[in-house]
């Protein structure tokens, strides 16, 4: 296996949204980084906190409104106005969760455990925690700490580091 000398050494990911596709992008990128021998730091802020909040992490949603990529199963475009109907978002989100499961992608909590098993570090944003009146006890046990943006940047220092914002 050839390892490039200029390969990325550290990946820092900021997850600021709670949609299934946003959270899973962040988790897949972070897990992929630790599996490639990179350091990975994941910082959850604003609605991204849902992904690490015990009560919410199992009920992540894909938005049914304002999501032009939505399709019916037969491929036809999904009219936006249907998204306003009660229950539609739950159906779409359920379908997304089933697709992920079928592909062998773990649930949120197990995914967080996979990342920390490989040495990845997960952080919650202090400001957003205060904003939403959340406490450490509300979060997954995998969270390494509640930190400020300045402290997160300290974790992101060093050569060959990349920051990804989602």
């Amino acid at each position: 296996m050839h390892i490039q000398v200029d390969a990325i050494h550290k990946i820092c990911i900021i997850c600021s949204k709670s949609g299934i596709e946003d959270v899973y992008s962040a988790l897949i990128l972070a897990n992929g980084a630790v599996m490639e021998g990179m350091e990975a730091n994941l910082f959850f802020t604003f609605f991204g906190l849902d992904a690490i909040t015990k009560k919410r992490m199992k009920r992540l949603k894909t938005p049914a409104i304002g999501n032009p990529s939505l399709r019916f199963l037969n491929g036809l475009p999904f009219p936006s106005f249907l998204g306003f109907l009660p229950g539609v978002e739950a159906i779409i989100s359920g379908s997304m969760h089933r697709r992920l499961e079928k592909k062998g992608i773990p649930g949120t909590e197990e995914f967080l455990q996979m990342i920390t098993a490989g040495g990845g570090k997960l952080y919650a944003c202090k400001l957003a925690m205060e904003l939403f009146k959340l406490k450490k006890a509300d979060l997954s046990d995998e969270i390494a700490g509640i930190i400020t943006v300045g402290e997160f940047y300290e974790q992101c220092s060093g050569d060959r580091t990349q920051i990804i914002y989602i």
């Binding site: 296996m1 630790v34 599996m35 490639e36 021998g37 455990q113 996979m114 098993a117 490989g118 040495g119």
Partner: peptide, 20 residues
């Protein structure tokens, strides 16, 4: 084994190294 131990058995790149 479990995932955590895989990183000990095959350091840094557990799946790739195991496959290789």
């Amino acid at each position: 084994t479990d995932i955590k131990e895989m990183y000990v058995l095959f350091p840094k790149r557990p799946l790739k190294l195991a496959a290789l």
